[in-house]
Design a protein around this nucleic acid. Structure first.
Length: 932
RNA sequence: GCGGGGGUUGCCGAGCGGUCAAAGGCGCUGGAUUUAGGGUCCAGUGGCGCAGGCCUUCGUGGGUUCGAAUCCCACCCCCCGCACCA
């Protein structure tokens, strides 16, 4: 058998007959979408998984009788494609290597892709080819890319709408930025510091006691401002500068950073920190005058380089002050020693059950820290204190209006209050350093001003989304909680970019709409795109009136027609299409999109469309790794969809990926397992060859058993597919049916054809090509369009199933015993005597030992063997008493030859030959076996 | 740290109060096959056992229960997200 040939043949046939191109009809519709892929490379195993699941569901639903729409488009918005084109143009070695080696792009082809347009052109063609090669039932009439002019009209319309609704606001936000490239930096642009996040420091302005010089102390713990005993500067050169009109003392590094922080900064002069030591500044909150002191641990490259000292709660500060006692530092700077008196820790946070009166002291003692040079230990101590106080701490009386508040709460409130009072500010800093751009420059945090934001933090919007979430089906269910949390957590999102491909913000054309922000409701665009692809709609027809009419039914038909230049009939047609297909019934996606795209997908649908068009369900699937290794588009390893299909075939690839793990968990692609799987599939084919076309003989119990078992497989498979549990579905439909089939054949079954049609149908969503092929040996229709098998309860025969199970156990038992008998020839079978059956029945009814005994003893025959009856009853109670109602003798007699061939023993039913003590073991459902 | 998920027999993974030594696949072992391998088919695959049995396992430690892989509590470990990036 040649998988490849079969697959190509049926893909051709499907396409020629257009069987996956649904139009509006009387049938109930099912609209399933998978996120369109981003085209900065070839489709890989991750796509393979998400798409195959989608296709299996699409095919399944189709066979259930739904009119299924399963469309696909391509995403090209954003910077990576541009970046890729640039790298290729530059002949970047690593890129060339990754794209030839992992993305399977031939070198000669690759080096031609020097513009974004060429990249998109190439990869979209490749993607479409790959998606066809694996046999997805996609309606290709609707494809598009997000660069298409028509799509841009659609996005512009959407953003005008959002703007009208007041959902787009202006704001600023911090980004990672390279001063050299003069551009924001993405993860893959970094040499170091990929995991660094942007941390927001609170700046508290301490003023000189006798002039307006500001010492901006940066802290992550603004709530401890009440415990400040002094402030720290490093004995080094600082900068005096105007910052938004104030004179600030800051480190040199901070001065550079502030230039990007959206502040007006002007250099005045360099100053030596020495000048300030011993002099005093005023705590803007407590008004206490505190001294400026030197400390080596101050990192001038962290925030402002000016630090407030809270010895009670900050181990660094505590230890630095201790150091004064041991060293001559104070003398060195001419500071009187009495100052130490002032530096006593001021405790301002209480923790229930805390051992040490001063938390910082406690941590320092616990870790045995001697000097401020033990930076690692001090970091650890800081974390310890911080963690404890943040979660369990309560603000003390000396914190004024914050007294009694939880620290976790007070922190933010103090921060906000400081800023409101004009004595606070923010300073953005990286959580880890260094952060270095590919060009070798140290990155900074830049605050981007006047940017457009989607106002996701708006309460009413969130409420609506949260409310709808409760109505939706989320698969797996536990993700609903995750969605709830993420909706709450979602803040305003910058939706505009300076660089990249995409659509310009229609009212501010300097900005482009960011790539996730243009992909929120594009499923609605699939309805229109087919008319665009047919040439019936041109970009110039896509006026706001057009979209308003199609999506909302807004406007007078005649007027809309004249304004858009689209015929009335066509407008109606498209409007009806939309009403028919919308909403999206299922959006199935990888779990990486939960906290972004899927949220936006919900938010935008809910904002823009009437309730009846809101998404019905979302499903989340896991990732794919390769031989246990994480895949990476830009670094490898990577397995392209195309390569998988070329090497293993479409059906094998599909079945493997569906069966590799259950829907929500991660799957691992193991080459060896994949190879093995083709053997399984080949077995199906071989079985078909042997049995599918055979006429069915008269049906016997064994056939009925197979049919009965098969009913369960149908039920289980459907149940699994309804929950998108593809692994379970494949396991049941393929492997477990296969196991039954093997038993059936081993038992001498001859009529496998009985279930074959239905078996093929059952498997069609998973392995459509081979099923289509075999099906056509007998039929002219497409199995892909056949009706999915239905569970028929009347065909389930419990008795027969129990009988087969009985037989299986009997054979196992005989084999088990046989192990212990050398030179075994005969197996004597003795069935339980009739009275035992009766006894079981009595026990079942009475459920009580003494009552059962009493009743049985009323039978004279049994009374004569009271002892044996009693011990039997004991045994039933001990071992349980659930025996099936089957005719054991008949079953064994009918299967005599089979048992003999399976066990290699001759069966004998002559009870005389069996010793008394063996014979007595016989139970209903479990005969005595004696082997000689 | 916060939030979500998870730790099952050699591996992947089902099971989620009794029918569980625990589905299915992989791997391994043995057998069959006009028997070189490979493929295919069949069987076995925790330990012990001269009779269908017994013993020990489901991250660790407790608990609830006649009975727990399954329920409760504590602890340990792993994965993912924490954003402006597709």
């Amino acid at each position: 058998m040649n998988f490849k040939e079969i697959e190509e043949k049926w893909q051709r046939e499907w396409e020629n007959h257009g069987i996956f191109q649904p139009d509006r009809s009387e049938k109930e519709k099912f609209f399933i979408t998978i996120p369109y892929p981003y085209l900065n490379g070839n489709l890989h195993a991750g796509h393979t998984r998400t798409f195959t699941i989608g296709d299996a569901v699409a095919r399944y639903k189709r066979m259930l009788g739904y009119n299924v729409l399963f469309p696909m488009g391509f995403h090209v918005t954003g910077t990576p494609i541009i970046g890729l084109a640039e790298l290729i143009a530059k002949r970047d070695e690593r890129t060339i290597d990754v794209y030839t080696r992992y993305h399977d792009v031939p070198y000669e082809e690759l080096i031609k892709l020097t513009t974004p347009e060429k990249v998109v052109e190439y990869f979209s063609k490749e993607a479409e080819r790959a998606l066809k090669m694996i046999g997805y039932s996609i309606d290709w009439r609707r494809k598009f890319t997000t660069m298409d002019e028509s799509y841009q009209r659609f996005i512009e319309w959407q953003y005008w709408k959002l703007k009208e609704m007041g959902l787009i606001v202006k704001g600023s936000h911090p980004v990672r930025y390279c001063p050299h490239d003069d551009n924001p930096v993405e993860d893959h642009d970094l040499l170091a510091g990929e995991s660094a996040t942007i941390v927001e420091f609170t700046v508290i302005k301490f003023r000189f006691e006798d002039n307006d010089l500001v010492f901006p102390c940066a802290t992550l713990r603004p709530e401890t401002v009440f415990g400040v005993t002094n402030i720290w500067l490093k004995p080094a050169s600082y900068v005096k500068a105007y910052v938004d009109g104030e004179k600030w003392i800051i480190s040199k590094e901070a001065f550079e950073k502030l230039k990007y922080a959206g502040k007006e900064v002007e250099f005045i002069e360099e100053v030596d920190a020495k000048e300030f030591f011993g002099r005093r500044v005023v705590n803007p909150v407590t008004k206490r005058k505190v001294p400026i002191l030197p400390a080596e641990f101050v990192d001038t490259d962290n925030a402002t380089g000016v630090v407030m000292s809270v010895p009670a709660h900050a181990p660094f500060d505590y230890v630095a002050i201790q150091d004064f006692r041991k060293s001559q530092t104070l003398e060195k700077y001419g500071i009187p020693r009495q100052i130490l008196e002032e530096l006593k820790p001021v405790v301002l946070i209480r923790i229930e059950g805390e051992n040490y009166p001063i938390p910082a002291e406690g941590a320092v003692k616990e870790l045995n820290i001697e000097s401020q040079r033990s930076v690692d230990l001090l970091d650890k101590a800081t974390k310890m204190v911080y963690k404890k106080e943040f979660h369990k701490g309560i603000m003390l009386e000396n914190t004024g209006k914050y007294s009694g508040m939880k620290v976790s709460l007070a922190k933010d409130i103090v921060h906000d209050d400081l800023i409101k009072a004009g004595v606070g500010d923010v300073f953005y800093e990286f959580s880890e350093k260094p952060v270095i751009c590919r060009c070798g420059t140290k990155c900074v945090v830049k605050v981007v001003e006047d940017q457009w934001f989607l106002n996701y933090s708006r309460r009413e919007w969130k409420e609506k989304v949260l409310e709808w979430l409760e109505e939706m089906e989320i698969i797996p269910e536990y993700y609903k909680e995750e969605f709830r949390n993420k909706i709450e957590w979602l803040k305003d999102k910058a939706c505009a970019r300076r660089k990249g491909l995409g659509t310009r913000i229609p009212w501010d054309r300097e900005w482009l709409i960011e790539s996730l922000s243009d992909s929120t409701i594009y499923m609605a665009y699939y309805i229109i795109s087919r008319y665009i692809n047919d040439g019936l709609i041109k970009p110039e027809n896509l006026t706001p009136e057009f979209f308003d009419f199609i999506f909302f039914g807004k406007g007078d038909l005649k007027e809309v027609s004249s304004k858009t230049g689209v015929e009335e009939n066509l407008l109606n047609e498209i409007r009806e299409d939309f009403e028919y297909w919308y909403p999206v019934d299922l959006r199935s996606s990888g779990k990486d999109l939960v906290a972004n795209h899927l949220l936006f997908f919900l938010f935008h649908h809910i904002a823009l469309f009437p309730r009846k068009y809101w998404p019905r369900s979302i499903a989340i699937n896991g990732f794919v790794s390769l031989e246990g290794k994480k895949m990476s588009k830009s670094k490898g390893p990577l397995l392209t969809l195309k390569r998988a299909v070329m090497e293993f075939g479409a059906d094998v690839t599909r079945m493997y990926i569906l069966h590799a793990s259950e829907y929500e968990s991660d799957a691992d692609w193991k080459r060896r397992d994949v190879e093995n799987l083709s053997a399984h599939l080949a077995r199906l084919y071989t079985l078909a060859k042997k049995h599918y076309l055979k006429d069915v003989d008269e049906i016997d119990d064994l056939d009925r058993w197979l049919i009965s078992r098969f009913q369960r497989a149908i039920k289980d498979t459907r149940d699994a597919m309804d929950k998108l549990q593809t692994r379970r579905a494949v396991n049941t439909a393929f492997f477990e049916v296969m196991a039954d089939v093997r038993w059936y054949l081993r038992r001498g079954g001859k009529n496998l054809a009985l279930i074959f049609d239905d078996w093929l149908k059952l498997l069609t969503p998973f392995t459509p090509h081979i099923c289509e092929e075999i099906w056509h040996w007998k039929h002219d229709s497409f199995i892909s369009l056949e009706k999915y098998p239905e569970y028929d309860k009347s065909k389930v025969n419990e008795q027969l199933e129990t009988a087969e199970e009985y037989l299986r156990t009997l054979i196992e038992d005989i084999k088990e015993i046989k192990k212990f008998v050398s030179d075994a020839r005969k197996a004597y079978i003795v069935f339980a005597e009739e009275w035992k059956r009766k006894a079981v029945e009595v026990v079942k009814r009475t459920g009580n030992m003494s009552e059962a005994m009493k009743e049985l003893m009323s039978d004279e025959r049994l009374r004569n063997m009271a002892k044996e009856v009693q011990s039997f009853l004991k045994r039933i109670f001990k071992e349980g008493y659930d025996f099936a109602e089957i005719d054991e003798r008949k079953i064994v007699m009918n299967a005599k030859e089979f048992i003999e061939s399976e066990t290699g023993l001759v069966l004998d039913f002559n009870e005389e030959r069996v010793p008394e003590d063996r014979r007595r073991i016989a139970m209903p459902g479990r005969p005595a076996i004696y082997i000689q």
